[in-house]
Computed example of a mutant assay.
Amino acid sequence: MTNGNLRIAVQLQPQHAEYSQIRDAVLRAEDLGVDVLFTWDHFFPLYGDPDGKHFECWTVLGAWAEQTERVEIGALVTCNSYRNPELLADMARTVDHISGGRLILGIGAGWFEKDYDQFGYEFGTAGSRIAQLAEDMPRIKARLAAGNPAPVREIPVMIGGGGEKKTLRIVAEHADIWHSFGDVETLTRKSGILDEHGAEVGRDTAKLVERSVGVDGDPAETGEKLVAAGATLLTVGTSGPDYDLSTLKKWLAWRDAR
């Protein structure tokens, strides 16, 4: 839920690295003062050597929950297709407890066909995957509510995606955070569409759904424009093996100077 505070996140992409290098990057990022640590949910690298080193999302999150003390953690974003929704909910509840209530449940419909093909999941169509996400969100929330012990907090749900007719409708119904893929203009236009869906489903999404977006480069060039467009969670991405945090440092310094 939106708290009005600007937050800077980093997505430590679990590719092309030994796990020791990922662990080191987590420590460095938390020490720098980042607000949220994200991984992603794939089985193979998205760029660089397509058969390079890679690690699984939720196992990594369990380790981060123990390793970190202050930051929120999550996936940007979990692929809904890869796990039974009740299982995913129970994994989230467990990581929430391990972390002391610092998990963000990021989720999306899925898109990377290689993951599906190599691991035996049915790829289907974009429409079928989005329909499955819509069907599974109530199941995830029901299982979270039924878990014993209950989650430490009401776990924030972040949905990533920009489909204007279907995905943003699911965001309006279920999300606490919406991750937009695109520039300032895309964020602004689709944010308005999200609020239209919110009015249709009876949620004030302008107040209840935080806007999230990926960032890169110089914050002096785009930072204030994104904030003016409503974004309050800004994520820098970085890949292994080195996990260069220099761009992250710039965005953290910009945050702290505002």
Results as ranks from 00 to 15, higher is better:
residue 115 D to Y: 02
residue 16 H to M: 13
residue 128 S to G: 11
residue 87 L to R: 03
residue 174 H to Y: 15
residue 28 R to V: 04
residue 7 R to F: 00
residue 216 D to R: 08
residue 213 V to I: 15
residue 129 R to F: 07
residue 57 C to W: 00
residue 218 D to R: 07
residue 77 V to Y: 00
residue 97 H to Q: 13
residue 8 I to T: 08
residue 177 I to R: 10
residue 245 L to F: 12
residue 149 P to A: 12
residue 207 K to A: 15
residue 238 T to F: 09
residue 91 M to N: 02
residue 133 L to Y: 01
residue 233 L to K: 03
residue 157 V to T: 08
residue 179 H to M: 13
residue 177 I to E: 06
residue 128 S to P: 06
residue 156 P to I: 02
residue 82 Y to S: 05
residue 8 I to N: 10
residue 166 K to R: 14
residue 169 R to M: 10
residue 219 P to Q: 04
residue 160 G to Y: 06
residue 178 W to Q: 10
residue 160 G to E: 09
residue 27 L to A: 11
residue 227 V to S: 07
residue 202 G to E: 01
residue 124 G to K: 00
residue 85 P to H: 01
residue 161 G to E: 09
residue 135 E to V: 01
residue 28 R to H: 04
residue 90 D to G: 00
residue 127 G to I: 07
residue 193 I to R: 05
residue 108 G to C: 09
residue 44 F to T: 05
residue 118 Q to M: 14
residue 55 F to L: 15
residue 79 C to P: 07
residue 221 E to F: 00
residue 53 K to D: 14
residue 33 G to I: 12
residue 200 E to S: 11
residue 120 G to P: 13
residue 204 D to G: 01
residue 193 I to Q: 10
residue 86 E to K: 10
residue 213 V to R: 07
residue 243 Y to M: 06
residue 249 K to S: 15
residue 4 G to N: 06
residue 125 T to N: 02
residue 193 I to T: 14
residue 99 S to T: 03
residue 8 I to L: 03
residue 8 I to Y: 00
residue 24 D to C: 02
residue 44 F to L: 09
residue 92 A to C: 11
residue 22 I to Y: 11
residue 160 G to D: 11
residue 72 E to W: 14
